[in-house]
Structure formats: structure tokens, C-alpha cells
């Protein structure tokens, strides 16, 4: 088995390989791939012909994904807390994970950075890192679950997002808080308001009691233990309180938008 493993992908991290492979595809190809799955997949095998027009299969899958958003919103209990763990269970080293290499991770100068606050809020002032560090902080040791299936336990410290939203006078009846980040190719992601107001949803400034390193999203990440990892924005530049669904980097490529845990 060990020999087989080496033969498969010698010296290459399989996760990175898969990610790189997907990354190299233009978005259209990635979308087409879903479609290709239809004709190459079970339908063809079972019937010997392409019974389902591929674009209509894709439309159906998208509809079911929207239905799954609704089901998950219905299942979401705003009081259900993600399990917490003792510090001894923290995964070491905690994996760096993104759709790019660590070398390509944003390098943000903390002194120049400001968090922009936009949309349905009373106070649209931008926040410096020093100002944010003065807000009351909490620590959580929770499990980060990746859409790929792996998981890791980490320790994150920061200000509950719901406290910050209150502080800036956000309209918490709005549907989303939409984050824009500094990742290359422009990562962004919408967070439904109920999840934004969850007690464990956090504006994170520290990992394992240390100032958030570049690998994990300096200067600020949003830790959402009730969402899959790809909906935990890093290198945050701005947040916008909005009623509009503005899509997201991964959501637009087909990952389920709610993706709640």
C-alpha cells in the first residue's frame, strides 16, 4: 500500500494537487465539469443514452442546492453551540489552506489596514487594527471543517461579530453580512444574518493566543464554527450589511451557499 501511495503522487500533497488542478481550470470548464459528470455518469451507464439534457441537469442540481439552503436555514438553531475542545486537542501544526500557495497569501501591513464597514449600518466609520484590538475578546477552541472532508481543531480569539454589529448600529433584520477579502482573484462570501449573530461567530485577531499569522488571515479573519471552512473569510478588507445576495468566490462556482455545519 505504501508503495502504491508513492507511485500515485510521489512527494506531492494530494490535497494541494487536487486544488491546483481545479484552480488551473477556467471557471467555465469547472462549471462544464458538473455537466460532463452527467453524461459520463450514471445516467449514461444506466440507460445507454444521455437522457438528461446536461444543462437541464445542472439547472436541477442548482435548484436542489437552493432548496438545501432553505432546509439548512430551517435546521439552523441560533442557540446550538459548536462543540468546544480542550487546548490539548488543538491540531498541530494547524494546516494552512487556501486556493493558492502560502507564498501567494496576502501580505497586509497592519498599520495601514482599515476595516471598511458599509451598507445598512448607522456608523460607517472605518476601523484601525488598534481600535479593533481594544474591543472585548473571547477565545474559542473549535473544529474547523473543510468542504473537502478533513477537519482540524484550532484556537481563535476575537470579538463576537454580533457585538461589533451592535456597536456599529447594523440593521440586524438585513439578510446578509457580505465580506470582501484581500485574497488574490478577490475572495468574497455572504454570511446569513442569523449565523452572523450566532454567539460563536467571531472577528478573529489571534490564533493560539498569538496575533493572527499571515497564514491564517492577518490582520482579521471571520471564524464561523457553524459553517464549512470556505465560508470563514480571511484577510478581511470590508464588511457590508445588505439585503442583496451578492454571491461569493466559492458559492458562484457551485459550493452550496449556506454550507452550515
Amino acid at each position: 500500500m505504501r508503495r502504491l501511495r508513492k507511485l500515485l503522487i510521489p512527494g506531492v500533497d494530494k490535497k494541494l494537487l487536487v486544488r491546483d488542478a481545479v484552480k488551473t481550470m477556467p471557471e467555465l470548464t469547472r462549471r462544464r465539469f458538473i455537466t460532463a459528470g452527467t453524461s459520463l455518469g450514471a445516467l449514461t451507464l444506466l440507460t445507454g443514452c444521455d437522457v438528461v439534457d446536461s444543462s437541464s441537469a445542472e439547472e436541477l442540481l442548482k435548484k436542489v442546492s437552493k432548496f438545501n439552503d432553505a432546509v439548512q436555514a430551517w435546521m439552523f438553531n441560533p442557540d446550538a453551540l459548536a462543540p468546544t475542545f480542550p487546548e490539548s486537542m488543538i491540531t498541530k501544526p494547524f494546516p494552512f489552506n487556501a486556493y493558492y500557495d502560502l507564498d501567494d497569501a496576502p501580505e497586509i501591513a497592519g498599520a495601514d489596514w482599515k476595516l471598511e464597514v458599509r451598507g445598512l449600518v448607522e456608523n460607517k466609520k472605518s476601523w484601525t487594527l488598534d481600535e479593533l484590538y481594544k474591543l472585548p475578546q473571547e477565545k474559542q477552541v473549535t473544529r474547523h471543517i473543510c468542504v473537502e472532508g478533513w477537519s482540524a481543531i484550532g484556537s481563535w480569539t476575537g470579538t463576537p461579530l454580533r457585538d461589533f454589529l451592535k456597536l456599529v448600529g447594523a440593521d440586524t433584520r438585513a439578510k446578509y453580512v457580505w465580506f470582501q477579502c484581500a485574497d488574490k482573484d478577490g475572495y468574497n462570501s455572504p454570511l446569513d444574518m442569523r449565523t452572523a449573530l450566532h454567539p460563536q461567530t467571531q472577528m478573529t485577531f489571534k490564533f493560539a493566543d498569538q496575533i493572527l499569522p499571515r497564514a491564517y488571515g492577518f490582520p482579521m479573519k471571520i471564524r464561523v464554527p457553524t459553517k464549512l471552512g470556505f465560508k470563514n473569510p480571511k484577510y478581511v478588507l470590508s464588511m457590508e450589511v445588505t439585503n442583496d445576495y451578492k454571491g461569493g468566490y466559492w458559492e458562484d462556482q457551485g459550493y452550496n451557499s449556506f454550507s452550515g455545519n
Binding site: R2, M25, G37, Q253, N256
Partner: peptide, 22 residues
């Protein structure tokens, strides 16, 4: 230490497969 051949999987990539699975 193994993966499944692309020819016998459905969805093309992780995102597509998750749509099918769910």
C-alpha cells in the same frame, strides 16, 4: 492511500460531486 479513478466518479470536481450527493 488511494483515490478513485475519475472515469467512475460523478460530478467532475468536488463542487459538482457535492451538488449530486446532496
Amino acid at each position: 492511500g488511494f483515490t478513485f479513478s475519475h472515469s467512475i466518479t460523478l460530478g467532475g470536481w468536488l463542487g459538482g460531486a457535492l451538488l449530486w450527493h446532496f
